[in-house]
Design a protein around this nucleic acid. Structure first.
Lengths: 251, 251
DNA sequence: CACTATTTGTACGTATGTATC
DNA sequence: AGATACATACGTACAAATAGT
């Protein structure tokens, strides 16, 4: 016996509240009516009202605080695009297929451009590691990088040579440092003379210059790197997906 | 009655279930015990068990289906990195600060490379729009693009000239087409002769080549574009943030 | 500072609806 | 048709955080 589709009451209430927030009935920064009041208004149990509010909460429209009330935080749901893979690895195409070779490492004191890169005061000591990534042993290198880590993590070097996979993972594995944010910016430029030999291209030939910052919980720079990818050996690819109702999917 | 414990019971239960799923007690693809059974096991009301399961559901570990059970979908929470801004605009630095000038548009039938770009069978008709983006009127162009849209959306052209902001937004605004996914890939190459004049650089000088696909709900290509950014006029930047506990934030 | 009122959070218990097998 | 299992909804009670008296 089929009954006409009935949308749940909490869903209807949620919808209604969303509209009213959008309309400005409950402006951003104000409080929603108390839960018991909403119960009275909609003629439902408190549980149901709470379920509705939970929907708004998940959308980021409101946030409730015990003893205070339910604060309206946004006028409408801001769509978010999500990087669909489960790690930052795929930021760099092939990064999981390439092997890192450490060429050299040395202690440096930040100054000038390095200072700016590492976002630290001049004179601070860091470990600079130069390396190259190869797709196959003996093949042409895909990239040449300079990686900077605080001296505290100098032990990383021991695990870096021959590494397959992203460098930042070592921070978590060996030092328990969680990378919470990654900033990446890419520009086009010529291959610097210093890298030309390693990459086996002519100095000045076109290349992708990528700078990455790996930030920790407190926003501090856990690691930074500058990488040069000669033309033709690398594609910077990315897929973003709009998050909405996450479909149940098919088992 | 309730005991004065620091962490809520549903949270403890959730934690426990997460561990057991990770440990393999409940393998991926199997069903969690029935809710009443979990109630018995943990000695709590069904409501509480449901709250715990809801936590796992939000993490994407399980998905419940009425009449069936609660399916285990993943062994552990896969960390997701989220593009922190609310629109794809910021994929292209400055894109909201630049103005689009339409240079020409014409109907084309896909073949060869275009066919591959648009992921359609040969012979299918599309509208090809050539344009350039300027940061300020009279200044040097930042980029030169070829945008492809299905003939159905040919009306877009009318709204494109002088457009400030992302092109894909027009699809939603005028045709109700929601862009659900964006793929972007960037490589380094020389400026094609055809674009050199528009961009006012020498043909063959280094440039960023960016290909973008804008996909709809059904995965179909709603729009595609190829863009050339001469060196020095553009930075491809991106910030990804690990999503975890979504902090309440300060009002 | 202690106390109290307010407001959301947690938890219990029960009943009924609805999709699936 | 019937059993199963999750979904929705009602009602109650107490805990905990907050803000003010």
């Amino acid at each position: 016996v089929t009954t006409p589709i009935a949308t749940p009451r909490y869903s209807l209430i949620a919808q209604r509240l969303i509209e009213e927030i959008a309309k400005g009935t409950y402006p951003v920064g104000s409080l929603l009516p108390r839960e018991p009041d909403l119960c009275d208004r909609f003629g439902v149990a408190r549980n149901t009202v709470r379920q509705a509010i939970s929907v708004l909460n998940d959308m980021g429209l409101v946030s409730a605080k015990r003893g205070v009330g339910t604060l309206v935080r946004a006028k409408s749901a801001t769509p978010k695009y999500v990087h669909s893979t489960d790690s930052i690895t795929s930021l760099m195409a092939y990064s999981h297929e390439t092997e890192l070779h450490v060429l050299s490492s040395r202690e440096v004191r930040a100054r000038g451009a390095v200072c700016e890169l590492l976002r630290c005061p001049a004179g601070q000591p860091w470990l600079e590691i130069q390396g190259a990534r190869f797709q196959r042993k003996g093949g042409l290198p895909v990239s040449s990088s300079h990686v900077y880590v605080p001296l505290l993590f100098a032990g990383m070097v021991a695990h870096m040579d021959g590494l397959v996979g992203p460098t930042y993972a070592l921070l978590e594995k060996h030092f328990g440092q969680r990378v919470v944010e990654v900033e990446q910016s890419a520009t086009v430029g010529g291959v610097p003379a210093a890298e030309a030999q390693v990459l086996k291209v002519k100095a000045g030939s076109p290349a992708q210059h990528v700078v990455r910052h790996y930030l920790g919980e407190d926003g501090g720079v856990l690691m930074a790197s500058t990488t040069v990818y000669p033309a033709g050996r690398f594609t910077l690819s990315l897929t973003l997906r709009l998050v909405g109702k996450h479909g149940p999917g098919e088992p």
